[in-house]
Simulated scan of single mutants.
Amino acid sequence: MLNLDRLRTLQAVARHGSVSAAADGLHVTTSAVSQQLAKLERETGQQLLAKNGRGVRLTDAGRLLADHASRILSQVELAQADLEAQRGQAVGELSLGAFPTAARGLLPAALVRLRAEHPQLRAKLEELEPDEAVPAVMRGDLDLAVVLDWYNKPLPMPDGLVKAALLDDPADVAMPAGHPLADRDQVELEEFADDEWVSWPKGEFCHDWLMLTLRGAGIEPRICHMAEEHHTQLALIAAGLGVAVAPRLGRGPIPDGVRVVPVRHTMRRHIYAIWRADADRRPSIRAALDALRASAAEHRAAEDAA
């Protein structure tokens, strides 16, 4: 009997082109990938990988099994979707992922709605950045994820995923209350060319976006501090240690000593849900999407009333 986890590992090697890239995509060690593939070779009695310079390549048998693995894993997802669709109810478990400010600003209300409207559905949330959530959905660790991209930097989206827009989230510039621009109604990014910046950590999608956007405005950014949590960034700004981009979703109360000012040419994050195309018929996916849309609508209404 072929093991589904090992088939998923082989499929990842075929998709990413190397053991190390597959390990990154699966968020495991290269040793774990190699062990899974070795076990799969013993199960099948076939050599699935061959050395290719410093790397490896799939043998003919490996490519053949990887093709079957894609169809098998897709069929497993379809079987689950069909069973749910036949029952017509959102039941069982549903694993959700969301980046931090969405986990704080959208998911609580959505999860409460799901629990009230679908009491037999057990939804579980994991906080993940978009570059972690996308591969997690692809490999089946998550059923649905809330991710983001920016108006000028799309998030790469693999084939086989479906996405639905939830809302656009404007972002302001947060600065110390004593900053010369703190009392303005609007600002331009170019006006912060001489400021020190508080950023997301290196390697995160939003950090890369910030570098791209500031350099596009003719600013070579001086990054003084990096923090993942927006609340930490705002605390640093309240202490007078720099300025930052501050999206509104999940931002919460602004600390004393901080002012947030809109940018004249509005910066926006596009926030949407993603799931696998072969899970599209699952009532639990539809239920989660309805709950997220309702939560997004409530957030927009609160923003308009503010």
Score class of each variant (00 low, 15 high):
M1V: 02
N3D: 12
A12I: 06
V13C: 02
A14E: 09
H16W: 08
G17T: 05
S18A: 08
S18H: 06
V19I: 15
A22S: 11
A23V: 09
V28S: 08
S34L: 12
E43T: 14
L48F: 10
R54M: 04
R57I: 08
R57Q: 14
T59C: 10
T59H: 02
T59G: 07
D60Y: 04
R63S: 14
A66V: 07
D67H: 05
I72Q: 07
A81S: 13
L83N: 08
R87W: 03
E93P: 00
S95C: 00
S95K: 11
L96R: 04
G97S: 06
A98I: 06
A98R: 02
G105E: 03
L107S: 03
P108Q: 08
R113G: 01
L114P: 03
R115E: 14
P119E: 14
L121G: 05
K124L: 12
E127F: 07
D131Y: 08
A136G: 15
R139M: 12
G140K: 14
N152C: 05
G160F: 09
V162W: 02
L167Y: 10
A171P: 01
P180N: 09
D185E: 11
V187E: 02
V187N: 07
E190T: 09
W200H: 06
E204N: 01
F205I: 05
H207R: 13
M211F: 07
R215S: 11
P221W: 13
M226S: 13
E229G: 08
H230V: 14
T232S: 14
Q233A: 15
L236Q: 11
R248K: 09
G250W: 10
G252N: 02
P253M: 01
R259S: 13
R259K: 10
P262C: 08
V263S: 11
H265C: 00
T266W: 03
I271M: 08
R281C: 00
A287K: 02
A288I: 06
A296Q: 03
A297N: 03
A301G: 02
A305T: 09
